[in-house]
Design a protein around this nucleic acid. Structure first.
Lengths: 182, 182
DNA sequence: GATTATTATCTCAGTAGTAAGAGTTCAATA
DNA sequence: TATTGAACTCTTACTACTGAGATAATAATC
């Protein structure tokens, strides 16, 4: 029996027979996809985050550790691209891991601007002890779909993501162009 | 010609013939799916974020506005569930929108604890002026897939997300149970 | 009517992360 | 050699958000 002052019944997507009116059908399809994609991502993220936090790591910290664990020492910039943080964030993350003795910086002999990040023995040990369990959590978070469907989903997402990444890459330029118009 | 002190060639997923060794196959499938899902989500997010920021809104602010725009006045808690922020964040968001005259609080006549958030005229006008373009951006961010594939993807993601959400919902309890063991 | 549990928002301190730009180093060209 | 521009990290200032608890109202039970 709620009765707010304004009627809550004005709906810009009044669904009659299932079809919204504000947009054309392909746009509606895309909108729906985005909603579902975002929610799935959030739900899975939450499960994984809960697992990671048990070891006093943030998701970003874990991302760095994982990259180093699987691919060995890497330039900060390389890791940055993989886990999608800012350059400042990258520095901060490695600092924090270094302070805890989980990772360390190594100089690059061929380029003195660059720094490698690498796991310490302690960091490696930690990852070895928690990664298998984490992989199991991922596995279980995905159990809503059979492996075959998971592979199909992966293929579709890859296509979607590749195009979106291309678009995102050219967006800053567009942004800069628009900024000039102000 | 990079030569870090430690060899960067120790790889815990040495791919020989395409199959990693640390985990069984289903787990590998799930891991791959997670990577692709996260990257797609990030790429699309970035495109949409760039669009939203042009109007001096954060993604979360836009989420609130959008919820109100499409469904009318709602309790803060309802919106909170939809856009996945903390209760503190929800209060903060409405404050900020109110300060700018885009949204306002309305009392609930039947429950004095509760508050509705609603768009002001100004907020509604803003959304009416920017939402169609935003929908078009979403549409274009999804253009990597044909509508039919988008629908297939949506269906798969829905299944995946539903199960993950169920899992996430029971995880806190698990966390609490584990906390007692410390 | 009093008590207890639950629901809903708000407060506030703390933090992870961003953005912009500074400082180095490298590479290419004249 | 000197210069210019690009590449890589780090610094600094800042901000959006979280999380835990406070406050207040409602609902349920005795």
């Amino acid at each position: 029996m709620n009765s707010p002052k304004r009627s809550p019944s004005k709906d810009h997507h009044p669904v009659k027979g299932g079809a919204p009116v504000t947009s054309d059908l392909p746009t509606t399809t895309a909108l729906k996809l985005w909603v579902v994609l975002a929610r799935s991502h959030a739900a899975i993220s939450e499960v994984l985050k809960a697992d990671i936090e048990r070891h006093d790591l943030t998701a970003a910290e874990f991302g760095v550790m994982e990259a180093l664990y699987h691919k060995g020492p890497q330039l900060l910039g390389e890791i940055q691209k993989k886990i999608l943080v800012s350059s400042g964030g990258m520095t901060f993350l490695v600092d924090r891991l270094a302070k805890r003795g989980l990772a360390e910086r190594q100089e690059c002999s061929s380029d003195r601007r660059a720094r490698y990040a690498a796991l310490t023995k302690k960091g490696e040990k930690l990852m070895a002890s928690i990664f298998p369990a984490h992989a199991a959590v991922i596995h279980s978070a995905m159990k809503g779909l059979k492996p075959a469907d998971q592979r199909a989903l992966t293929a579709l997402l890859k296509e979607l993501g590749t195009e979106a990444a291309r678009l995102a890459a050219e967006t800053p330029a567009c942004k800069a162009a628009l900024a000039e118009q102000d």
